[in-house]
């Protein structure tokens, strides 16, 4: 049992007051390790809320640096961070909120040959990248390592999220099978996104991570939550594990991780670039 000091009791009081979290739930949060893949539109709010919640160890993987065009939505990066590695910028804000957090940064591309080793240390992964090769890579690696994760995607005014618990619920590949042809993916710079959508979806993903760790509530497993912020329509679509899923089905055809070709955004290698 963790003996919380007075400052921690004050800091985490709103969690401790919650019947579904309480002292025990806060202890779990303080001991938890969560990896955020992509420190962009989604990863930024996730990092801030996990830090605020006292998640003991937060890992951040991103190979990119902060650009001025990121600041419209990637709220862990400030004007003075332009040019900094996103992982360093995010770490600065995490520690500014909560100096007790242990932060691990991975300023590198996530690839088939390094991802399993990186994610293995974590209890939960939050995937918030903008590209399908990395989304599929994270899904497959998490299935192979048995690590639960949250998928998140945003585009224009829309967002979607699902939570995958390997061996228990439908995975990203059950639903989406394989990356869309690169030339069909709308070029990110052309599609655009309303900045606040990143916050809406990122906080949903952060909430899923906190719920998984504390055991509170029901996760977005076997469920695709999608919303259209133009009219604030939220919809849950029931999903099912697919017997013919190539990674978690009865006769999986995928036994090794795949580095898919990147298209669309002109990203050349399997970068953990954030949305």
């Amino acid at each position: 049992m963790i003996e919380f000091n007075e400052e921690q009791l004050q800091r985490y009081s709103r969690h401790i007051l919650l019947a579904d979290v309480g002292v025990e739930g806060q202890e779990k949060l303080c001991r938890a390790k969560v990896l955020i893949v992509g420190a962009g539109g989604l990863g930024a709010p996730v990092a801030l809320y996990l830090a605020a919640a006292g998640v003991g160890t937060i890992g951040i993987a991103d190979a990119d640096s902060v650009e001025i065009s990121n600041l419209q939505r990637q709220i862990s990066h400030f004007h003075h961070n332009i040019g900094d590695a996103k992982v360093d910028s995010a770490r600065e804000k995490i520690l500014a909120i909560n100096p007790e957090i242990k932060v691990n940064t991975y300023y590198e591309y996530l690839r088939a040959d390094n991802i399993r080793e990186i994610i293995r240390d974590y209890d939960f992964v939050v995937e918030g990248t903008d590209n399908f090769p990395t989304k599929f890579l994270v899904n497959d690696a998490c299935i192979m390592e048995g690590i639960p994760f949250s998928h998140g995607g945003i585009l224009r005014f829309d967002g979607q999220a699902m939570t995958v618990v390997p061996g228990k619920s439908a995975c990203y590949r059950c639903v989406f099978r394989e990356p869309p042809p690169p030339d069909a993916v709308p070029s990110c710079s052309q599609a655009g996104v309303l900045g606040a959508i990143a916050g809406m979806l990122g906080t949903i993903q952060a909430a899923e991570a906190l719920k998984f760790i504390t055991g509170a509530g029901e996760l977005l497993t076997d469920t695709l939550l999608s919303f259209d912020a133009r009219n604030m329509d939220f919809r849950k679509t029931r999903l099912h594990c697919q017997e013919n899923c190539p990674i978690c089905g009865k006769n999986p055809g995928i036994h090794e991780l795949i580095d898919y070709e990147h298209g669309g955004c002109g990203i050349k290698s399997s970068k953990s670039v954030a949305a």
């Binding site: 650009e67 585009l155 979607q160 099978r177 996104v193």
Partner: peptide
């Protein structure tokens, strides 16, 4: 399966969901 969109016929009272690929919006 994507390759069966043309030859999968729908029946009365079928429930169909379109699930959109959603990546993100870098840059």
């Amino acid at each position: 399966d994507r390759s069966h969109y043309a030859d999968t016929t729908l029946k009365d009272d079928d429930e169909v969901d379109f699930l959109y690929f959603m990546g993100g919006g870098r840059r």
